[in-house]
Design a binder for these strands. Structure first.
Lengths: 208, 208
DNA sequence: AAAGATTGTAATCAATTACTATCTTTTATC
DNA sequence: GATAAAAGATAGTAATTGATTACAATCTTT
């Protein structure tokens, strides 16, 4: 037993790649993802810069792995909570909460998404980000459609607009937390925000 | 008379600075603002890279000017349309439309905002972005409060949440247009989006 | 324990970064 | 039209970028 925590060297390749992705996620929480250098990543994980390229052929390949990690994590969490309820509205709320929780734990994730989508050249990492968001929108759209059938959600609702607003809410909270420089503000405002959203999409006949 | 349109040289300093800001806004529409170099800016305006530093002492000073331009433009347009109506709800809708119109004309603007807010170090440009968004939120909050007094807007509304959602809508549309790679999608979705927003914040007693 | 494969180090590469010093050209003012 | 100031061109700087190299340390397999 000689696992010194500070210097974990000679990790198997797969494990090293995983640690690298974690380091990038960490760094993306602290600064603009576009300006993260390979030297910074290496320093964060107590490794030399050149060693990084033994595990990733190129920097974009590294970003690709990172985006895949984010995709798997976020969609995984979302699908998990959706499956726990039959109510579409409740599912949307849990989906939103799960997303905010994920973003609060990994503030770098939405920033990376945004940064990747901005890239002019069609990189592999960018493509992953695009398909991820498409899948995300599909989840929201499906739940909304389900709710309309059940009569919970307004039948005249513009599903596309409601999807954009759902994603916009997350983005708005992220932006607000960046202005305030405080992540707690995000979790605190999540519940009233969704309440406002629900008020906009739900059917009215039953009330009052 | 030999004013070839491609080479506008020897501009007076003030004019040159204005042209520079325009060039940066243009470039920010095409790629990640954080990775815009002084060489690129100079090339875009048919100037040598060194000449840029005759008009801006440092690169951050340049960004500062750009952020000031965005602030003046956006807040200026917004205040202008707000003044044209007495109805808070109508004012909000016009404000939203003006914002989307501005963003559609200058897609680089919101990207720069996002990029600046992400910077870990407290630069002058970042400070401008923060105060700008604070002023923006104030405008929304004031209109909402006014609407509550007039009985148009739900008295139990969470004003902070509604402000976050307002900004989030813009951000959501920006993101959607980045995924689609098409700016037209933004303008097309603006109206139904605001309708959904209005549905969430307005008083219910008068209807049905 | 020998052999081979894997992982990491240190030095280095060309390209690019923001920024500067020096020289030339253009513009404005008399 | 002479002269000074303003604006731009040219050609640099040191530092940083992603990526590659030769070599050493470590692990795995036999």
């Amino acid at each position: 037993m000689k696992t010194t925590k500070t210097t974990i060297k000679n990790l198997p390749a797969e494990q090293r790649r995983a640690v690298t992705v974690e380091a990038v996620i960490e760094l993306a929480a602290e600064k603009n993802p576009a300006s993260i250098t390979t030297a910074e990543i290496a320093e964060r994980m107590q490794l030399t810069q050149g060693a990084l390229f033994r595990h990733f052929p190129t920097k974009d390949a590294l970003w690709q792995s990172v985006m895949e990690w984010v995709t798997a994590q976020l969609l995984g969490r979302i699908d998990k909570v959706i499956a726990t309820t039959e109510s579409p509205l409740e599912a949307l709320e849990m989906m939103f909460a799960a997303h905010i929780d994920f973003v609060a734990k990994h503030p770098g994730a939405p920033r990376m998404m945004f940064a990747e989508l901005q890239r002019p050249d069609p990189t592999a990492a960018k493509a992953i980000a695009q398909t991820m968001l498409r899948h995300y929108s599909d989840r929201v759209g499906t739940l909304l459609a389900k709710g309309m059938v059940e009569g919970i959600i307004d039948p005249d609702l513009d599903v596309a607009a409601a999807s954009v607003m759902f994603i916009g809410m997350v983005q708005g909270l992220v932006m607000q937390s960046m202005i305030a420089g405080d992540l707690a503000v995000m979790i605190g405002n999540a519940k009233p925000l969704f309440a406002l959203y629900a008020r906009g999409i739900t059917q009215r006949n039953h009330e009052r």
